[in-house]
Design a protein around this nucleic acid. Structure first.
Length: 477
RNA sequence: GACCCUAUCGUCCAGCGGUUAGGACACCGCCCUUUCACGGCAGUAACCGGGGUUCGAAUCCCCGUAGGGUCGCCA
């Protein structure tokens, strides 16, 4: 694999551009081997999780190689294109932390961008495409037919050298056998995907095309186009697809198909990013929770698997829990407040110190931020909702013991966790029961639930007034 | 229909000619514990089928089967 990679690099140089279509920038590129990769999504209104992983692999490779990561918006389909749709992509990439070195800065195609190989919106590159079409026409490599421009496709099998899949020889299908040529410019003058994709990769000096395996078969067309322009195609790396748990294709409607699902459902971006890496790639040393710098250091194309992977939501949740546990208190606090606000829990109504103390008791206990409202909602409400189990557990006998505990707490010198624990245990001993017999009723009274944060700590944070009030309300009910 | 890719526990990965086929998630049991988590220990569970090559195949080759992808004036 390494050997042919090096050979391919040499070939690339040997086949340096030799016709007038290739300007100085392209020539310059082939002489310095700095890696340039791109993520080229179409603004359809959502960012597919598989697309997010494609972006991630491109980004990781660029960072690993010290190369350039380019974002190019393939907005040739005017009907589906909108700034809102572009923003979904920009927001998604930013959420994951995938910063691009070249590309748009805003969703506005006419707006500012960075990089000197633009424009980075295809809708702004019409002249480039027109010139390229003209060049092919003038050399007889394309021709007009029924108002459209068609490219003269080779009838010979095309060799695609892929860093992931290996050498692939693509023969024509029976349908292509009848008419191998394909349209590169429609009768309305707009260029077609295969064409603009190649033109842009060529003009932007893309060295490695890392994309989904669904493009593998079409790569023959791209290779033929590159050759028609007189240059060697870039290196290809077709990565396997992400499927649903049942092995079916992940389409828009499927749960978790869109990146926004994770943004809105309590996931930490670093956990999603880490999990995505593990689909079709591994560090080989058995580690799975891997810090980003090490991900970058270890990532490479040849280790990418060749078969599709099914998305395991359970494992992602586990990994999310791992990241929540390792998170700094400040970040946990910030993300928690957002998650609570999204669920309609307004923490602003409470003192900051109280909110922080309350959230401290939740650290390390959750897998998703969306679990937080149910887990810690009792801190931020005046009315505790008793669930069915809680009600059933509050038998007359339990109420009687709760009353005893209430009286003991009423006389507590202070309301610190350690004190409360001592008092509860002493009370249990005096009643001749196990600690748990008292623990459960008071937890129910104060939180309404059978499980939650450490009892003594949550009591301390709620404070004497709230605790007494909740016990009394429970006893009165 | 044709072309292309793929095939190890339920899932994600390790394995790259000789291993008691390893790890993670999930699941089950036990321990820890104020609940729930976490953590610790143990367990169930896999090389798609058939032919070759080889002293020896999960690993290499062929066929079959299955899954996925592609053959647009969609991207």
């Amino acid at each position: 694999m390494c050997i042919w990679r090096r050979l391919a690099s040499v070939c690339h140089v040997l086949h340096a551009p030799r016709n007038d279509l290739n300007d100085a920038r392209t020539t310059n590129l082939t002489s310095n081997m700095s890696v340039r990769v791109r993520f080229a999504p179409s603004p359809t209104g959502y960012l597919h999780i598989g697309g997010a992983r494609t972006a991630l692999f491109n980004w990781l490779y660029a960072r690993h190689m010290g190369g350039t990561f380019i974002l190019r918006v393939e907005d040739t389909d005017a009907a589906r294109n909108s700034q809102e749709a572009v923003n979904v992509i920009l927001d998604g990439l930013r959420w994951l932390g995938l910063d691009w070195d070249e590309g748009p800065l805003t969703a506005d195609a006419t707006g500012p961008g960075k990089g000197d190989r633009g424009p980075y919106f295809q809708s702004r590159r019409k002249e480039n495409y027109a010139l390229r079409v003209e060049a092919l026409l003038s050399r007889g490599l394309a021709y007009e037919s029924e108002g459209a421009v068609r490219f003269r496709m080779t009838r010979e099998p095309v060799l695609v050298r892929d860093l992931v899949v290996g050498d692939v020889t693509r023969a024509l299908t029976d349908r292509e056998e009848q008419d191998p040529d394909f349209v590169i410019m429609r009768s309305d003058g707009s260029p077609v995907f295969h064409f603009v994709n190649v033109v842009d990769d060529l003009e932007m000096g893309i060295t490695h095309v890392i994309r989904g395996e669904d493009h593998l078969s079409n790569t023959a067309k791209h290779v033929a186009l590159f050759k028609a322009f007189g240059v060697e195609p870039p290196q290809y790396a077709h990565i396997p697809l992400i499927l649903n748990a049942d092995g079916s294709k992940m389409s828009k409607r499927d749960t978790g198909a869109a990146l926004t699902y994770y943004m809105e459902n309590g996931y930490a971006p670093e956990a999603v990013l880490n999990y995505l890496c593990l689909l079709g790639w591994s560090a080989r040393d058995g580690r799975e929770v891997i810090p980003l710098p090490e991900l970058i250091a270890n990532f490479d194309l040849p280790q990418i698997l060749r078969h599709n992977a099914r998305f395991d939501h359970e494992k992602l949740k586990w990994m999310n829990g791992e990241y929540l546990r390792a998170m700094t208190a400040d970040r946990f606090y910030e993300m928690s407040v957002h998650a609570l606000a999204r669920a309609g829990v307004d923490t602003n109504a409470f003192p900051t110190a109280y909110v922080k103390a309350a959230l401290d008791t939740c650290m390390g206990k959750l897998r998703l931020f969306t679990d937080l409202p149910a887990y810690a909602g009792f801190y931020f409400t005046d009315r505790v909702e008793m669930d069915a189990d809680a009600k059933a557990a509050l038998t007359p006998e339990a109420r009687d013991r709760l009353k005893k505990l209430r009286d003991a707490y009423a006389g507590a010198a202070d309301f610190k966790a350690a004190t409360l624990e001592t008092i509860l245990k002493d009370t249990a001993k005096a009643l001749g029961v196990k600690n748990g017999v008292l623990v459960h009723p008071i937890r129910f009274a104060c939180t309404g639930k059978p499980s939650g944060p450490s009892l003594y700590h949550l009591l301390e944070i709620l404070g004497r007034d709230r605790v007494m009030q909740r016990i009394d309300a429970t006893l009165a009910a």
